[in-house]
Each structure stands twice: as structure tokens, then as C-alpha cells.
Simulated scan of single mutants.
Amino acid sequence: MRAAIAANTHTHDRLRASAANVILTAGAQNGVFAASLCLLQAGDEVNRPRAPCI
């Protein structure tokens, strides 16, 4: 599946990617969490927008 996504990215977006550059997660929240683990360190400050009131 990762190879197919990489090929689709190259075909439609003209970006070079290999299957090794593709990660699949079980939803957007898991993807954001995985990215934050890669980019942030203990003690980093993170600002996030407040959820709109309903």
C-alpha cells in the first residue's frame, strides 16, 4: 500500500517519494501524534488553537 501511495504522489503531485517515505496511521490524530513525537522534545512549548464553542 505504501508503494501505491508513493506512486500516486509522483503521478498526481509530481513529487518523488518512495515507499520508505510513506507512513500510514489509523487516523489524522494518530498521524499528528506520531509527527509530534518526531519533532518535539520534553519541555518544548506547543500552542494550539482553542476548539470553537458550540
Rank of each mutant, 00 (worst) to 15 (best):
L39I: 08
Q41T: 07
H10L: 14
L40D: 00
I5D: 02
T11C: 07
T9N: 10
D13R: 06
G43N: 13
Q41K: 15
A19R: 07
C53R: 14
N47C: 10
H10S: 10
A42P: 15
R14F: 03
L15T: 06
A28M: 11
L39T: 02
R16T: 10
A3F: 06
L37D: 12
G43I: 05
E45S: 15
E45Q: 14
V22Q: 03
V22M: 08
N30W: 02
T9H: 11
V46H: 01
G31W: 01
D44L: 05
L39M: 10
G31T: 01
A51H: 08
C38N: 13
A6Q: 04
Q29F: 01
A6F: 01
A34C: 03
P49F: 04
R48G: 01
A17H: 11
A35V: 03
A4E: 15
G31E: 05
I54G: 10
S18Y: 05
A7I: 01
M1R: 09
Q29W: 00
G43A: 13
C53G: 09
D13S: 09
G27C: 05
G27S: 01
S18W: 04
P49I: 07
A20C: 05
P49H: 09
N21K: 05
A6L: 03
A19M: 08
R14Q: 12
R50Y: 02
R16C: 04
A20Q: 15
A4N: 13
I5G: 00
E45G: 09
C53T: 11
A28R: 13
S18M: 11
A34I: 06
R50W: 02
E45M: 12
